[in-house]
Simulated scan of single mutants.
Amino acid sequence: MRESAAERHERLLGLVRDRGSARVSDLAALLGVSPVTARRDVELLAGEGRLDRIHGSVSWPGRRPAAAPGAGSVADGGHGPVIGLLAPSSTYYFAEVIRGAHEAAARAGSRLILRISDYRPEEDPVRTEGLLAAGAEGLLIAPGWRAPGDPAAHGEWITGLPVPAVLLERRAAPGSALDGMDRVASDHGHGALLAVRHLRDLGHGAPLLVARSDSPTALAVRSGYTDALGALGLRAPGPVIDSVPAEQRPEEFEAAVRALHEAVVSGTASAALVHNDVDAIQMVQRLAELGVRVPDDLALIAYDDEVAALADIPLTAVAPPKREVGREATRLLVERLAGGPGDADEPRRHLALLPRLRVRDSCGARRAGDAGGGTGTHTRRVADGISS
């Protein structure tokens, strides 16, 4: 009978557990599979936090491979503290956050270990226990919250952690126990303000907001949009249009597209802010099929800037400082871990990093600039948080 992938993964884990560490090429030979298959298995298991991967080798969590004489301590973890990172995902938005944390840990001579919750907040405590069991001396915590009530329902355990912790890309309710923790997060309210103000300055009224509601970022964008309208003295042209993943809920996604289409053809709105990039790209394509063109009929700004530049019409996008969030949170945690007995008296910190607006084609700004007699080339513009 042919061995299943799950059975092969268990054999691989057993080999690494028995040896402490092993080269991926050696594992391929021991398992009787190709090096490509072994690397794919290792990447999957490392992404799940079940193995640690370092430079062509893997090790059992909490057991570092011996360093060769003269080997660089920064790349391999050095002699600094072991830092555990709990993230809801290792792809899309959080891939950059994790990358930034890894870079800062390496510079500090620390080793970063990872657990992924897959946006299941009820599993966050167990995943964190795994990080502690693997030797984490400090923790970066990005809970897998989705709904507004998740921090209250799935957050209290964080305040009882036995090691220093920094809340990562998450905010807590004012006055809650979590609000007294160190945290580093993007200021999505500022990001929404950048988008609304830019569209206003291009001559549009208040844009419509098309947004998801299934993550803390989505909820912060919604709140920031309302605040931005108030700060700029604008009135929303209509209610927020609820967006959903097109692949998972196609009928609801189509309803969102139709609502935006109707707002444009009726003259209700000439601009929109869309969270997130993937939804924005798919909406632009579907709107074109319905006869609404971006940016001719609709100026559009996406929120996240993960894949916005890759659209047929490159999308202007708000770019949260994801990698910098990972870096700054790691630096803060390393500083806490290096503090002496008096560090407990130091004030906790709430660090908010400002997003940027990257101007491309979808809002019509470049076309307007070219009409003024320019050379027709795309120019770089950096002012008041706007760059392209």
Rank of each mutant, 00 (worst) to 15 (best):
T159F: 07
A302H: 01
D124S: 03
G135E: 03
I54E: 11
H79G: 13
G56K: 08
F253G: 01
G342S: 15
L310Q: 15
D277M: 11
P216W: 04
A246L: 09
G160E: 11
W145G: 08
D52M: 14
G77Q: 10
A67G: 06
R19W: 00
A28R: 05
L208N: 03
I113D: 03
K322T: 03
S34I: 06
G20Q: 11
G238Q: 02
R39T: 13
V359K: 02
A173D: 13
A38V: 10
L234D: 00
A87Y: 06
P355S: 09
R23N: 02
A173S: 12
R107I: 00
A329P: 10
A256S: 13
V33N: 01
V97L: 10
R212Y: 01
A365V: 01
D179Q: 03
S362H: 01
L30N: 00
Y303E: 09
R356A: 12
A228C: 09
R2A: 15
Y303D: 10
P121R: 08
E252T: 12
V318S: 03
V274W: 06
P355D: 09
A87Q: 01
A5E: 15
V325C: 11
P355Y: 08
L194M: 05
G149N: 12
L31T: 04
H102S: 14
H275I: 04
A101E: 02
H55Q: 13
A228V: 05
G230D: 14
A192H: 04
L161E: 11
A75N: 08
S213F: 09
E324A: 14
D227N: 10
I281R: 09
A101L: 00
